[in-house]
């Protein structure tokens, strides 16, 4: 099912960007900035790299504006670009393991990601338990193969449909379904102790 420019307001915005409407581009960046950083962050697990990926994504969107065709829902299109940029950054990271872009320089790279609440505030024990389970979730997601990780991120946190995820990953709907099934089965095993706790809550 191709995207419908009439029903996707973001496609309308992108078509204005195509006509060199600078205000439309600024609006689009505002709408997608946090989402793109979020997808990149969950995939790469380092905030400086996620920000770099987001910056590169918006640059590519702008540079490719004349070639844009609304064959996909806009969110699928932009996340396709984000996915490619993230894969490039991962390859760069593998080739240069000692140099993690600006992560090492600013000390905010590895492992910073969780928003751990202050244990002094409120129920300290519950907060610590929550922080622990979030850390376990983060590590479990990081351990997934790249394609399973991206499929999970797009389904779980971006609420994309199977078809839209297929558009991003260049997979059929049934392939996406089995990729997600495998990813979630792994997470359920890996996070079993925390699932029980979560279930009790």
């Amino acid at each position: 099912m191709p995207a419908n420019p009439e029903t996707d307001p973001h496609i309308q915005l992108m078509l204005r960007v195509q006509q060199d409407d600078e205000a439309a581009f600024t609006e689009l960046v505002g709408l997608y900035q946090r989402r793109v950083v979020g997808v990149a962050y969950r995939f790469l697990q380092r905030l400086p790299e996620a920000e770099e990926a987001a910056q590169e994504t918006f640059l590519r969107v702008y540079q490719a504006r004349k070639k844009y065709r609304p064959s996909l829902k806009f969110s699928s299109w932009i996340f396709t670009i984000t996915h490619r940029v993230c894969l490039n950054l991962l390859r760069h990271r593998r080739r240069h393991p000692a140099v993690s872009l600006d992560a090492a320089a600013d000390g905010e790279g590895r492992g910073r990601p969780l928003q751990v609440a202050d244990p002094k505030a409120g129920n300290a024990e519950a907060e610590m338990a929550g922080a622990e389970s979030r850390l376990q979730v983060q590590q479990a997601v990081a351990e997934l193969p790249e394609v399973e990780r991206m499929a999970l991120i797009l389904e779980q946190w971006e609420d994309l449909s199977l078809r839209e995820i297929g558009g991003v990953l260049h997979k059929s709907t049934s392939a996406v379904k089995s990729i997600l099934f495998r990813a979630r089965a792994k997470l359920r095993v890996r996070l079993a102790p925390y699932l029980e706790r979560s279930g009790e809550a």
């Binding site: 946090r34 950083v37 962050y41 969780l114 389970s133 979730v137 946190w157 699932l195």
Partner: peptide
């Protein structure tokens, strides 16, 4: 249950 656990992991704001 897995959904409830996963949604607790929020991405940070850009710096």
């Amino acid at each position: 249950s897995l959904d409830r656990l996963l949604v607790q992991w929020q991405a940070p704001e850009p710096r």
